[in-house]
Design a protein around this nucleic acid. Structure first.
Lengths: 182, 182
DNA sequence: CGCGGTTAGTTTAAGCTTAAAATAAATCGT
DNA sequence: ACGATTTATTTTAAGCTTAAACTAACCGCG
């Protein structure tokens, strides 16, 4: 591990909590030396990991496939006209190279097809095959059922609130992403 | 891919939305064929992925390390008496084998140490070395700073609400996990 | 004691994922 | 038209992750 951060990189700004005037005190609430914002992140990560694990297990157990494969097929299902490799990687939020390998395996299994895109010889369009569409149609109710079960402990009201807050969070993260010298 | 789900597995239950009496209508709000619960899950996953990517980038860029390594070190930091391999894998929510490899690399780098646990020759205790502790202390303010920046768009009030809802969600998922024939 | 079952951890094979470098086609500016 | 840049995708090397099989140590009980 490199011992010192590169000097040409932005030094981390730790303080400057905006004290957003919501009337609650500014206490960081450290109980184990971890600050509120970080605890929020850890909790978010824990929820995601738990759900993800169940979905992964279910897909393997019931359909002998994987979450990334399912995810790729879901993207194609939502875009029946097909997607380019780049569009796939953007929507799946993974790297280009990742999609290359994933798509390759799905082609092997006969679930998706790659064809040259019109008018740009670099580009390819990936589409679900009929067999892939059928497979996805078999999987998606099970998938939705698992999710439903896992969030069943929340009321509709809570779900709506969570949707809203997560939308705000996403926006916040994307703002940071754009505002920071990558 | 296996074409049919194993007959001995629980069939997916798709319907049965409890219509939780919150006064809002029972519309699933399908806009692209994806149900509310699944959209909630996708949004959660999107937030997590976005934040995770930034953290990963930062750790690589500024400290030449990875998120799982940082995570392992963070667990040890919070447990100064050290943790067994199994405790580590439980707290990190990853498999045992995963921790084996991770710990090995950190030992290589001199950041953690493995020593036999007292009274049980199967067990080992993993601890941060002084060098590992120092490295973690250098990383953690930067890490917290990135998180702070990413959630800065939320008010303290919103953060608190989100914390609460995520706690409820976690509980819901864990209940499902326990209530379902694994 | 010694067997059976459990628990802690490692190994293995396969697949996932990334960052960075490479390839190749399109586009832009002369 | 032609070189430079950008864009789409693949390749590569390294590391992460899982599930399943395996090894070794513990524990209970006859």
């Amino acid at each position: 591990m490199r011992v010192q951060p590169s000097p040409d990189r932005r030094p981390p700004t730790v303080e400057a909590s905006p004290a957003a005037g919501t009337g609650q005190d500014d206490d960081d609430g450290e109980d184990d030396g971890t600050r509120l914002d970080v605890r929020l992140w850890l909790r978010l990560l824990a929820c995601t990991s738990l759900i993800e694990r169940q979905v992964r297990r279910g897909l393997r157990r019931d359909f002998d496939t994987t979450l990334p494969r399912f995810d790729l097929m879901a993207q194609l299902f939502r875009a029946p006209e097909g997607l380019s490799m780049g569009e796939l990687s953007a929507r799946m939020m993974v790297t280009n190279g990742n999609v290359t390998g994933l798509a390759e395996r799905l082609v092997q299994e006969g679930l998706v097809e790659r064809r040259p895109a019109a008018g740009d010889r670099r580009r390819q369009t990936v589409v679900l095959t009929p067999s892939g569409l059928a497979a996805f149609r078999r999987m998606t109710p099970a998938h939705a059922g698992w999710i439903d079960g896992m969030v069943a402990g929340l009321s509709n009201d809570e779900k709506q609130q969570l949707m809203g807050l997560l939308a705000r969070l996403k926006q916040s993260v994307e703002t940071y992403e754009n505002g920071v010298p990558q």
